[in-house]
Write a protein that binds this DNA or RNA. Structure first.
Lengths: 207, 207, 207, 207
DNA sequence: ACTTAAGCGAGACGGTACGTCTCGTCTTAAC
DNA sequence: GTTAAGACGAGACGTACCGTCTCGCTTAAGT
C-alpha cells in the first residue's frame, strides 16, 4: 500500500514522452535536486509567503532561469518539492471497520502535522481563488487518492453492516477531512486522542 | 440579536478611550472610507495575494502614508475593510433544536459564501504561520462569537434531551465548521441542500 | 565699525511698514529663537543638504507651520539662522595700505573658516542656478558690504600712491575673494600664512 | 595634445582589468547611453538639486535598479554623464608666456561657461563637506590635470625670465582658478575680455 | 470683561522620491 | 543545448519629508 503514491511533477510537465531522446546537455539531476532541497529548506525557514524564487536560486547555487525553465510558478515548485510529504498510502482492509477508519483519520492527522505538508496546504488554500492549477495539482496528488481509499473503507463498512446502508459517503469524507483540518491546522490542537473513535462513532450513529 | 456584532477595528486601534481630547487635525473620515472601499473593490478584482498597498492608495486617491499611518499591515487593512462582512449574529432560541442548528449551519454557509469574507478567510489561513495577529483578530471577531453562540444552541439541545447528554461539544463545533468549510470553500460546492439536516442528524446520533 | 552689520531677514519680509497695528497674538520670540538655534545645531551636525524642515521643527519643539509662516524656504531660514556669522565689519583706515588689505584678507579668511558661514556659502553656491533669491540675500548681506569696504581700502591705497593709479579695482576684489575662497574652502588649506602679503604684493605689482 | 584627457568613470569602477572574462549578460550600452543622456537632459532642465534618480529612469525608459547597479550615488552618475564636458587638454608651449597663460585662462573660462560643467561644479561644491568622493573624482578628472599643465606653463615662463624666479606657483594657480571662478560663476559676468591679460600682468608683476 | 484675530503645538493629508527587493525575461560564455 | 551568471524593465516595499491644511489652545489688542 505504500507504493500507491502519486507524482505531482506530472501535472506541470510536458507529456513526458517525446522529451526522451534529446540532443545536447541533459537536464542536470544535481541542479534539480539542489533546487528542490533548497525549496524545502526555505519553506521550513521562512514559510511559503516569504519564499522567493531568487532565494531558492541563491541557496541552490543555481541560475534563476533554470528554475523558470522547469517550473512555471512558485506553487508548482513548492508542490513538487514537497511531493514526498504528500504521498498517501491506500487504507488496508483490516476487517475491522472502526480500525480502518482510525487509519484513515491517522493519515489525515499525519499529513496535517507534517511541517512541509501543512505549509503547502496553506499555500494551496491561499491560492484557491487565483491559481486553480495549484489546487488541482494538490487534489490529484493527495485529495482524490485519499478520498478514493477512504471511500472504499467506508463502503466496506457499509457492506459489513457496521455503518448505516443509506450513508452519504461524500458527506462523511468531508466531515472527516474538515474536522481534522479544523482541529489540527486551524485550531492547532495537537491532542487528537480519541478523535478517530469519536468521528467513527459519529458517522456510524448517523442515519 | 442581529446587533450582537463585533468590530475588527478594535484589534488594531488604541484603547479608544483616552484618545478623545487630542490636538491637531483629526482623522479624515472621507479618506478612511475611500481607503476601505478601495480595499474591498480590489479584493474582489484581484484577490488578496495581489492586493498591494500602492494600488489601494492609487484607487482611493490617497497618499500611501495615510494608509500606513492607520493600519500596520496589509492584513489589518483587509480585516477592517471586510469587518462588516464578518459580522455574525447570535443564534436565536427557536425552541426547536434542529432548527437552531440549521441556523448555525446557515450562518457558516452565508459567511463562507460571501466573496469578501471568503477572500479574507483564505488570507487568514495563508498567514496562520507567519502573522498570528491576523488570525487572532479573525478569531476574536468571528470564530469565538460564533462558537459561543453555537455552543449555547447545542447545550440547549442537550438540556431538552434532543442531543446525547455526554456530547463532546467542542468536537461538534469543529465538525460543523470544518465540514461546511470543506464543502463550501475547498470543494466549492454551493449545493448545501440538506447539509444542515444531515449534520444535525450526525451530531444527534453520535453517542 | 562692528555695528555696521546687515540683517538678512529683511530680504524675505514684507515692506515692514504696514504691519505695525495688528491684532491677535504676536510672534513668539522664544519660538523664533528655538527655531534658529535648532537650525544652527543641525547645520553643524548634518550639514545643509541633509537639513530638513521637519527635523528643525522636531528639534525646536515647534510646529512645522510656525517655520513655514515666517520663512518661505529652507534657504531663507538657514541664511537668517547664520546671519550673525556673516556679519562683516568695515575695514578701518590704518594709514598703511598693506595693513588695510591684510585686514580685508583676514576678514575673508575668518568668514570662510567659520563652520556655519562656510556651510551657508556652499548652500548659496549650490542654489546659484535654481534659487537666485538666496544668492541675492547673501550678496546684500555679505558680498556687497565687504566689497564696498574693501574697495574703499584699495582706493585709499591708490590715492596714497601705494597702488597703481590705473588699477582695475573690481578685478582686484575678485582676485582677493576668489583666491581666498579657493584656498580656504575648495583646497581646504588652513595655512594662510603670508597669503595677505602675497596677494597685496600681487595687486601692488600689477600695472 | 587634445587627446590628453581623463575619464571620470574610472573613479567609480573596479580596477577594470580582471573583469574581462565574465559570464552572464553584458552591460547594455544602449541602456547606459540612454541613462547618461537623460541625466544630461535633466541637468539642463531642472538642475542638479532637483535631479532625481526616478526621473532619470523614467526619462531613459529604464528600471531604477539598472541605475543603482552601475552608479553608487547621484553624484557619481552626474559626474560620468558630464565627463566629456570636463575634459581638459594640455596647454601647448607657444613660446610666448603670456599667450600660454591666456590659453590657461581660456580653458578655465570655457569650462566654467559650459552649462553642464558649471552645474556639476556647483554640485561638487555643494557636497564638498558631506561627500568627499565626489570632490575627489572631480579633482582627479579636472583639477589636477589642469593644475599640472598650467604649472608647466608657468614654470616655462619662469625659465624664460618672463615671470619672477621666486614666484609662488601654487598661489598663482589659486589666483587664476579662484578669480575666473569668481567672475564667471559667482558674479555670472560673461565679459571676460582682457581677463587673461590682466591676470598675466598681475602674476608677472608680483615679486 | 468681552470679543476677536492672530500665533502656536500638533499632526493628518496627498504627494514624491528614496534605496532595496523580487519578478519574469533575456543574453552570454562555459561545459 | 542546458547551465550559472547576471543584466534588464517593471514595480511594490516601507520610510522620510515635502508643503498645505485643519484643529483646539493661548495670547493680546480693541472694544
Amino acid at each position: 500500500m505504500q507504493n500507491a503514491t502519486y507524482r505531482l511533477a506530472i501535472m506541470w510537465e510536458m507529456s513526458t514522452a517525446e522529451m526522451r531522446p534529446k540532443r545536447g546537455r541533459r537536464r542536470d539531476p544535481d541542479a534539480q535536486g539542489a533546487i528542490l532541497q533548497a525549496t524545502r529548506d526555505l519553506l521550513l525557514e521562512v514559510g511559503y509567503p516569504k519564499l522567493s524564487i531568487e532565494s531558492v536560486a541563491r541557496r541552490a547555487g543555481v541560475g534563476k532561469s533554470t528554475i523558470y525553465r522547469w517550473w512555471p510558478t512558485r506553487g508548482a515548485l513548492v508542490l513538487e518539492a514537497t511531493s514526498s510529504n504528500l504521498e498517501i498510502g491506500v487504507i488496508p482492509d483490516t476487517g475491522d471497520t472502526s480500525q480502518d477508519l482510525a487509519i484513515a483519520v491517522r493519515q489525515l492527522v499525519d499529513t496535517f502535522s507534517d511541517r512541509l505538508a501543512s505549509t503547502v496546504i496553506f499555500a494551496v488554500i491561499a491560492h484557491l481563488e487565483d491559481d486553480p492549477r495549484m489546487a488541482a495539482a494538490f487534489r490529484d496528488a493527495w485529495v482524490y487518492p485519499w478520498r478514493a481509499s477512504a471511500r472504499a473503507a467506508i463502503e466496506r463498512g457499509m457492506q459489513r453492516g457496521d455503518l448505516p446502508p443509506d450513508l452519504d459517503v461524500d458527506l462523511c469524507l468531508d466531515v472527516l477531512v474538515g474536522t481534522v483540518f479544523q482541529r489540527t491546522l486551524v485550531q492547532a490542537r495537537p491532542d487528537t486522542e480519541g478523535l478517530a473513535a469519536a468521528l467513527t462513532a459519529m458517522i456510524a450513529g448517523s442515519r
